[in-house]
């Protein structure tokens, strides 16, 4: 571990990737909290899968391999998916999880179809479109990191400015409306940020595992605190830790993909939180139950003897 810390200083690649995965982990932790508290946990999954056809279509239409063009395609496709999810819920009697499932599978299936179709095109392999399924963190470059940090900064700014409105929106959207808060704009803002965060993360973690990265830090953080601001802060930190540790571990071994390792760490943090967190954790609850049991027994005994 110490060797790794030293490497961050000395080695360019390790430094860049660590910074990138740390920033990404923080963004995903932060925005994931919103998704979890809005009960839209699976939205991340649906959107990341929905981004796939956008990436491939962007390549087909522009024939460039530039990352930013592909990511723009991902954002557009993610947005369309998200709009469709809302429409389905509004216009039909289907529930949200059904709509999510439909969009997820249809878009992803379409994306895979496109991937197989363009196999026959010579430049496709050079665009590395396949890499978006599971990510390839090792190819993060300085520009990517700069972008990630910029988005993180922007998210923090918005959070700072509109903290109380966002908090109320999450807690009681109807009531918020009666106070004159424009819940629609805020809603769209949150969704757009989530989509952007997901798309930025696709290069590192990939389409398939993205939803875990969005949810795990937030779910873990929730266990440790009952204050919204602490939860947001903690989930950003946990996301960062997942990113950095994941990079450290995969950097020390041959043949360990960074993306999946990061996800495994994030999920492990969730498991640890579920078991060990004070108050909400399994162990804490057991201890409390035992205490209660002893207390009741004592009360019964006292009552019996008087």
């Amino acid at each position: 571990m110490l060797e790794f810390l030293e490497l961050i200083w000395s080695d360019y690649t390790v430094r860049i990737i660590t910074m990138g995965t740390a920033a990404l982990g923080a963004i995903l932790g932060l925005l994931g909290s919103f998704a979890v508290l809005r009960k839209q946990s699976l939205l991340g999954d649906a959107i990341s899968h929905a981004a796939l056809p956008g990436i491939v279509l962007a390549f087909i239409l522009t024939q460039t391999k530039t990352t930013y063009v592909l990511l723009l395609g991902a954002i557009i496709s993610g947005l369309i998916g998200s709009v469709l999810i809302n429409s389905i819920v509004k216009r039909t009697h289907l529930k949200t999880d059904t709509a999510l499932g439909i969009i997820l599978s249809v878009f992803f299936g379409f994306g895979m179809l496109l991937l197989t179709a363009i196999q026959k095109q010579p430049d496709a392999a050079q665009a590395g479109l396949d890499k978006y399924l599971f990510g390839q963190a090792a190819t993060l470059m300085l520009e990517d990191v700069k972008l990630l940090i910029a988005v993180l900064g922007l998210a923090l700014l918005i959070l700072f400015l509109f903290y109380k409105e966002l908090k109320l929106l999450l807690f009681d959207a109807d009531y918020a409306k009666t106070l004159g808060i424009n819940t629609k704009y805020l809603d769209v803002l949150i969704t757009v940020f989530i989509i952007v965060a997901i798309v930025l993360g696709l290069q590192t973690v990939g389409v398939v595992l993205m939803s875990a990265m969005l949810l795990a830090p937030a779910a873990a953080a929730r266990q440790w605190t009952n204050s919204l601001s602490t939860m947001l802060f903690l989930s950003a930190i946990l996301g960062m830790i997942s990113g950095v540790l994941g990079t450290a571990i995969s950097a020390s071994q041959d043949n360990l993909s960074t993306g999946p390792v990061i996800v495994i760490i994030a999920v492990s943090l969730v498991v640890i939180s579920f078991i060990f967190a004070p108050n909400r954790g399994l162990i804490a609850k057991r201890v409390q139950q035992r205490k209660n049991k002893k207390l009741f027994e004592k009360i019964k005994d006292d009552a019996a003897t008087t």
């Binding site: 509109f162 009531y175 808060i181 602490t230």
Partner: peptide
């Protein structure tokens, strides 16, 4: 509103929840 419409597992204290009533008077930021 109906209290059944809210997720009461939301991380906030009683005092904080009540202070939310002042947000309308405060305006943005």
């Amino acid at each position: 509103p109906q209290k059944e419409a809210i997720d009461w597992d939301f991380p906030t204290t009683v005092l904080d929840a009540v202070m939310m009533g002042t947000y309308g008077q405060l305006g943005w930021i």
